[in-house]
Computed example of a mutant assay.
Amino acid sequence: MLRVHVTTEDLLNVTFASEPLPLVELAMALVAWQRRDEQAVFGRWRGHVTRELPGRVRPLLDLLRPDGDNPQFVEPYDRTLEDGLCAVREAGPRLTPEELGRAAARAPGSDSWLRALWRQDREAWEQLDGALRSAYEVLVAPYWPRIRQSFQADVAWRTRLLAAHGIKACLASTHPRAGWSGSAFEVDVRPDYEVRLGGRGLTLMPSPFWTGRPLIAEGPDGPSGAYLLMYPALTPLPLVGQGPAEGALDALLGRTRAAVLQLLVQQRTTSELARDLDISLPSVSEHTRTLRAAGLITTRRDGKAVLHAATGLGVDLLHSGG
């Protein structure tokens, strides 16, 4: 379980990141590619990535593993690719033997490349730079407008949720198994990890690639600043429509998911949604799961039928989105 102990001062220092960050999103994209959850959403994208990624990105898989708990030096908080790559290189001399041991223990292949990296071997660092550039050109650069659209829509939605229902509801909506126990924010998913914010606050950052539980790490300002909490964006990248969204609701949820919510002003079964929208039952289940996690719909079983309906919050969102 992730447990984050929050003080009153922390609650006064909860903010949202201002924009997505290139190498952070690259790391999350590589992680998403290796994961096997959310196949209804990410399956086709993963197949495309498998065909497109060049072999030279292979060393990155020794550093960036599917659970997302990865060395932070390859995920710098810089706003451009070049600044981020420079920050990665400058982090080299500060890497510790303990960090090497942890990375080597998690790597699926030989640790010889990692050891060369920690020894500041020039060829190993050139290999890392080339791998990051190649992966960025395939995974991030073509999708950057859609990454920004997902990010901005999620922040807009949660800002509204924060204003209407408070910080506890805002944080609890970041994961289906998230909630509160007293003053502790908890996510009931392993592994166990506990953090005391101690008044430093939180910076919230949605990622359209990340599919697991919220991740917490030191933020851009290090030990003197707020912690960073990264969580799955409400609309993952494969569901962000190509081109400009037709409306605010489409920008936030994606066209199909917005249509699901609109239909659920009246109660419907999973089969009825699939029929009315001409999509598969697994796709309906994926959309309703995410809408339910965000508090926008409720689901209950009535015999063999599964019934869905919009909540008051969902209806409010429909009204505000026109």
Rank of each mutant, 00 (worst) to 15 (best):
T203K: 14
E126N: 07
L64I: 12
R275L: 12
L318M: 08
E137V: 04
E194A: 10
G182M: 04
P238T: 03
A153N: 07
E194S: 10
E137P: 03
T203N: 11
L228R: 15
E99A: 13
D10W: 02
P236G: 01
R133N: 09
P208K: 02
Q39E: 15
E19F: 09
L239D: 11
L2F: 00
G166R: 08
K168W: 14
E286R: 15
G241M: 03
L81S: 06
M1I: 09
G182T: 06
E99R: 08
Y231L: 00
L171Q: 04
D250M: 02
A103Y: 04
V284I: 05
G198L: 07
W118Q: 05
R196M: 07
R160L: 10
I279L: 08
T96I: 05
W157S: 10
S271Q: 10
T269M: 03
S134A: 15
A141M: 05
N70W: 15
V57G: 03
D129A: 08
V138D: 01
D67Y: 07
G254E: 07
R65T: 15
A116I: 11
W210P: 02
T290G: 06
G166Y: 00
H319W: 15
D276N: 08
E126G: 00
Q72W: 03
D221N: 10
D37A: 03
A87V: 03
A131E: 05
P238L: 07
A104N: 11
T174P: 06
D37N: 09
S224R: 13
L234W: 00
H175K: 00
Q266K: 12
T80L: 01
D78A: 15
Y193P: 00
V6T: 04
Y227T: 01
E186K: 08
E19R: 14
P220C: 08
T298I: 14
V31S: 05
G225Q: 00
Q39S: 10
P206Q: 07
G130E: 07
R122I: 14
E194N: 09
Y227D: 02
R158L: 11
G55S: 13
T211M: 08
A248L: 13
S280M: 06
S224W: 15
V260C: 07
A164K: 11
Q34F: 08
P71Y: 05
V265P: 14
G179P: 05
G322P: 03
P145A: 05
L197C: 15
G68Q: 02
R301A: 11
W45L: 11
R289H: 12
G303D: 06
W113G: 01
G109M: 10
L162Q: 12
R56K: 14
L85S: 08
L60D: 05
S320I: 00
R3F: 08
V138G: 01
M230I: 10
A248S: 14
T299M: 06
D276V: 11
V140Y: 11
L239A: 11
E286C: 09
